[in-house]
Amino acid sequence: MKNYQITEWCSHFIRQQVKEGDFCIDATVGNGNDTVLLCELAGSKGKVAGFDIQEKAVEETRTRLKERGLDSGAKLFCCGHERMEECLRSDPDCAKMTERAEDGYGKVSCIVFNFGYLPGGDHKIATKAESSVEAIRQGLTLLEKNGMMSLCIYSGGDSGFEERDRILAYLKGLDSRKYLVIMSSYYNRPNNPPIPAMIIRL
């Protein structure tokens, strides 16, 4: 790893998870860093769907993907991530992501979340507790066996603590027979450091 910032920490595990041809979702596109990474890892045979409620984030990410020749494998939606399953199901290019196998598992290898506000953007526009928990719930049903969900959970400052507390409570209640939840902590850092989390669908 280049450093131990939360985004680099989570990217380390994303790189180990995603392989050529995978289906992936960036549930909070933001500045597009994770979308680009997922597209690079999934390759020309894979597919990446990205969601963000801010048109600016979607357009800037689309531009970044085009500049890198990665746009053909990506589909971006300007809407809240709590609508991910609805949007994927209604889009011909992404509908396969919502299909379930006979054993009930989905087809998505990796889903990435960064909760909070867009870095460099309007701090008044941020993810919210209710819609974020719903997006996590939907995403978990889309994961394939041994699929992974990566979460960067920010709190304090402008965004407060409600979303963090609701997400952590939801993760704590997940069925341990179906999901493995791994929490990390910047244990000696002050000022409400972010929380990296991983969920593996068993």
Rank of each mutant, 00 (worst) to 15 (best):
I195D: 03
L168M: 15
R189C: 08
A169C: 07
G160M: 05
R68M: 13
E55H: 10
G50T: 02
G69V: 06
A101C: 07
S159H: 04
S184F: 09
T127W: 07
G32L: 05
E162F: 11
L76F: 02
T127C: 10
G139A: 11
L38G: 07
T7K: 06
Q5C: 02
D91H: 14
D22C: 11
L65N: 11
I6L: 11
N3V: 01
F77V: 03
L168C: 15
D26L: 05
G120E: 14
G43S: 04
E144R: 15
A101N: 10
G147A: 05
C79A: 09
Y170R: 10
P194D: 13
D71H: 11
D175M: 02
T141C: 07
A42Q: 05
F23R: 07
A169P: 00
P190T: 09
Y105N: 15
K145N: 12
K128R: 13
E163Q: 07
L143S: 10
K172I: 00
T63D: 11
V58C: 09
M183G: 09
R137G: 00
C78R: 04
D52P: 03
G43P: 03
A126W: 00
C39H: 06
D52C: 03
E130P: 04
A27H: 05
P193Q: 14
N3K: 04
E20Q: 12
E40T: 06
T98V: 13
K47R: 14
L202P: 00
A74I: 06
R137N: 12
N114F: 02
A101M: 09
R89A: 15
Q17W: 02
C79M: 07
D71V: 07
D52A: 04
G46R: 00
F115K: 02
S132M: 08
Y187G: 03
D175S: 06
Q138R: 11
T61G: 10
Q54D: 09
L41E: 10
A74V: 11
C78A: 02
P193G: 09
T141I: 00
C39Q: 13
Q54E: 12
H123T: 14
S159L: 05
P193S: 11
K96W: 00
I125C: 08
K172S: 06
G21Y: 06
L38V: 08
G157D: 12
T141G: 09
S109L: 03
L37K: 03
K47S: 09
L151N: 05
S44P: 01
G69F: 01
W9C: 04
P196Q: 01
D93R: 03
G156F: 12
E82P: 01
Q17N: 11
M84L: 15
F13A: 01
K2V: 06
E85A: 04
E85Q: 12
C24K: 03
S150T: 14
N192G: 02
R89D: 08
V48C: 03
G69M: 06
F161H: 09
T35H: 08
M97F: 09
R83K: 15
Y186D: 10
S44A: 10
G73F: 04
L151S: 04
